[in-house]
Design a protein around this nucleic acid. Structure first.
Lengths: 196, 196
DNA sequence: GTTCTTTCTTAACCTATGTGAACGAAAACC
DNA sequence: GGTTTTCGTTCACATAGGTTAAGAAAGAAC
């Protein structure tokens, strides 16, 4: 596997080392690609046929509702996977957009190759199962947080869990991720700065 | 497999039939259990060592925050799996409670047996991977909905997607699932009844 | 450097949802 | 069948967060 960073990530998730055969299979299935800042990886209405593993840079996925508000769904930096799950896993048209926040270098894995990969070596089924389990736990936590805590609490929690995101991601996107308007986040930050 | 309903569900998810060996493995790993109404399957603070597949009845998981509000996280009826994901998959103490809403008959799969099962036949890794993919797509949708739509929209959407839940689950729990108070749901329902 | 664009902040006012309390209707219990 | 909880509704009032608009600050483009 040419991408040492990915292999390390996978082995950490799996809790066991990845055999050479599996590595070579992955290499045959995925390819590397680079994007400038503000380029679209996925557009709503079209099928999202790829999942992306970020080697360098940052992306985010967002959804635009009927009112026209943009809502960040997920942020992804180095060592994160990102895709439109509903579209990629079920082959439906995507509802979200995925866009780079910075110049980004990433690995691209098509749905077809993903399925082939899982068929060629059972460790791939296992790796993605475990990856999804972890993601699921995070999403549950996020849902609880979103439905039961106020905006200030959510922002404090976000800053605590993802301090590196705070530095790299524009505030108005963080606001939309938290389910509030940029003006409200500005107000909340001011209050926090005062009372600590 | 003694539980035809589960086998059907699994094969539908997998898109292929489950070999006899895999069925027998599952039978050796899981056992059936029955609960009365309002019994606790999981308590916060303790490890949640099981995941549950509901054969008959209904359960829900909820989280109680510092203010003491109860917030429904997930509802589960026949053919749903339910667990505290963070606790079950990572072995941490549970943060949520899982409770029966009705007398319930379910299958119990311990974390140990789950892991054994996945090691004995690769189809189990695959089944749970695909199950998790679908769950993930739903949760993404729910997060988007919760952060970008108002309470009325969320209630309409919930009614549309889960009409069978509306009948079986108390309103104050649906309210907490939607992130609002029971009084607000009552008000919203009244408005909807008027304007349609 | 200067200009243009994007992002962040502030403030006044507005609205959806929360709060607390009271009441009636179911449902559970004996 | 009567009693006791639990659940749903309503209302008056409170508040977090949304809206609109304007300007300051920070980057990007030239």
């Amino acid at each position: 596997m040419p991408h040492h960073t990915l292999q390390t990530t996978i082995e950490k998730t799996l809790g066991e080392s990845l055999p050479d055969t599996a590595c070579r299979q992955f290499d045959a299935m995925a390819f590397e690609k680079s994007f400038d800042k503000k380029q679209l990886l996925v557009e709503p209405g079209r099928a999202c046929n790829y999942q992306y593993f970020i080697l360098e840079g940052a992306c985010y996925s967002y959804y635009i509702n009927e009112k026209g508000d943009k809502n960040a769904v997920q942020f992804a930096i180095e060592n994160y996977w990102i895709t439109d799950a509903a579209s990629y896993f079920a082959g439906q048209p995507s509802v979200s957009t995925i866009e780079t926040l910075e110049p980004t270098r990433l690995l691209v894995l098509s749905r077809q190759n993903f399925e082939l990969l899982c068929k060629t070596h059972p460790l791939w089924d296992r790796y993605f199962r475990i990856l999804l389990q972890t993601t699921l736990a995070h999403l549950h936590y996020r849902i609880v947080n979103t439905t039961s805590e106020n905006a200030e609490h959510r922002y404090r929690e976000f800053s605590r869990l993802y301090p590196h995101f705070i530095q790299r991601i524009p505030q108005y996107l963080i606001a939309s991720y938290l389910g509030i308007k940029p003006q409200s986040l500005s107000r909340i930050r001011k209050e926090i700065a005062h009372k600590g």
